[in-house]
Amino acid sequence: MTQEMQFKTIVAQYCKVTPEEMTNSMRFREDLGFSSLDFMSFLGELEDTFDLELEEEDVLKVLTVEEALELLERL
């Protein structure tokens, strides 16, 4: 599984959109229905799965799937 698909599979656990239906332009809150708590819990799951440390300042700027994927790429 590619990192992108692995990422979308995690996102899909938090919403009603399947990884296949998920587009990179989708916004976490407006399109995927994430609450603030969902989003922060999801970031924790990302840290555990990909064994990385996210900076709070960076993650609070993330709005879309694409921006989150770019952040993952950079780390």
């Binding site: 922060m40 819990s41 709070e56």
Partner: peptide
């Protein structure tokens, strides 16, 4: 403050 708390709510 709350967003940061959510991130550390484990």
């Amino acid at each position: 403050v709350q967003n940061r708390i959510y991130m550390h709510s484990n």
